[in-house]
Simulated scan of single mutants.
Amino acid sequence: MRIATRRVRQRSATGLSCLALLFTVVMPTMAHADCDPSDRNIANHVMTYSGQLGERNPLRLVLRPTSGGKLEGRYANASSQSDTQLTGKLESKSHLHLTEFDAGGMPRATFEGDFSSADNVNRQQGASSSCEVISGQWKDLRNGRSVPFELVLTSIQTGKIDHLYGVAGVNDDEAVNRAATQFRKGVLDDRRDVVAQSIRYPLHVSLRGKTIILRNPKSLLARYNEIFTDGFVRTIGAAVPRLMFARDQGVMLGDGAVWFDAAGRVIALNRS
């Protein structure tokens, strides 16, 4: 079962390939670009960005622009147990400043970055190149440590920033996050029993050009090595199981590799 992933995958793949090109070619002379949500139909929409914090830390960031250049947001990495809330603003239509706070309400770290020109980034309806790529530095205010980040816009959607999965019929986003985290950990730890119990059966999976039907955990375990190849495991490992993209058919982990239903059960495995 493949749930409307082709356009999402093409969009993300194009964006990420362009981001890689930006790293190697454009980065030394990167031009800043205007990003003015008030000029376009994205004010009060949720903008989701994916990329890297440092060299090996996958990151997802959601932003909700409001009037006057104010921003609210959340971010998470692959090992996060919860989302980190952010507040900030957009300065001069190109510079992004976001602050995260500790449990006592004191500033703990900042994201300082700029929206960068990316004329070759794939367009999606309602988006323009001026808001599609952010590059900058995350800084720990306690010890002064600074880490670079690079993010590319992956989706713009309506909804509340603290309830992203409502469109998929989810009542509790955190329940789906926990299920996605458990499934991902089960895959990475080779806990096949956990993976098998995370799936809603029957499940249709494409193998070598043919679609097979997995009717129960036993049938999954019999084909486990064929499905969860090293490459597919790496794909799942690189995904952040929080702040995921959602649509009416489900909640998507990573670039459409896995989809979950409203109860957090796996309903599709899309192997590239």
Rank of each mutant, 00 (worst) to 15 (best):
M1K: 08
I3M: 05
A4E: 14
A4I: 14
R7T: 14
V8Q: 14
V8T: 11
Q10W: 07
Q10H: 11
R11W: 06
S12E: 15
S12N: 12
S12M: 14
A13N: 11
A13R: 12
T14L: 14
L16C: 00
C18F: 11
C18I: 11
L19S: 04
A20K: 06
L22Y: 08
F23I: 07
T24W: 03
T24G: 10
V25L: 04
V26T: 06
M30N: 01
D39P: 00
I42C: 09
A43C: 06
A43M: 15
M47D: 01
M47I: 15
L53W: 09
R56E: 14
L59A: 03
L61R: 07
L63W: 07
R64P: 03
S67Y: 12
S79I: 10
S80W: 09
S80Y: 05
T84C: 04
T84M: 02
L86C: 02
G88I: 02
G88F: 03
E91C: 04
K93P: 00
K93H: 10
S94A: 11
S94F: 02
L96I: 15
L98E: 06
T99Y: 04
F101Q: 03
G105A: 07
G105P: 09
M106N: 14
M106A: 14
A109F: 05
T110Y: 03
F111A: 02
D114L: 05
N120V: 11
N120Q: 15
A127R: 09
A127E: 13
S128Q: 10
S129F: 07
I134N: 04
W138F: 13
K139C: 06
N143K: 12
G144M: 08
R145I: 14
R145H: 15
V147D: 05
L151C: 10
L153P: 05
L153C: 05
T154L: 10
T154K: 07
T154A: 07
Q157M: 13
D162Q: 12
H163E: 12
L164P: 11
Y165K: 07
G166Q: 15
V167I: 15
G169H: 09
E174Y: 13
A175C: 00
R178K: 15
T181Q: 13
F183H: 11
G186F: 01
V187M: 03
V187Y: 02
V187N: 04
R192G: 02
A196G: 12
A196R: 06
Q197Y: 04
S198V: 04
V205N: 00
L207C: 05
K210F: 10
I212A: 00
I213V: 15
I213K: 13
L214H: 05
R215S: 13
R215M: 01
K218F: 03
S219P: 00
L221G: 07
L221C: 09
N225W: 00
E226A: 14
I227G: 10
I227E: 04
F228H: 05
T229Y: 05
D230L: 06
D230Y: 00
D230W: 00
A239W: 01
V240D: 02
V240I: 03
R242K: 13
L243G: 02
L243A: 04
M244N: 04
A246L: 07
R247F: 06
R247D: 15
D248R: 14
Q249D: 14
Q249H: 06
G250T: 04
G250M: 01
V251Y: 08
L253T: 07
G254I: 11
W259N: 08
W259V: 03
A262S: 15
A263L: 10
G264W: 09
R265E: 09
R265P: 01
R265A: 09
V266K: 10
R271K: 12
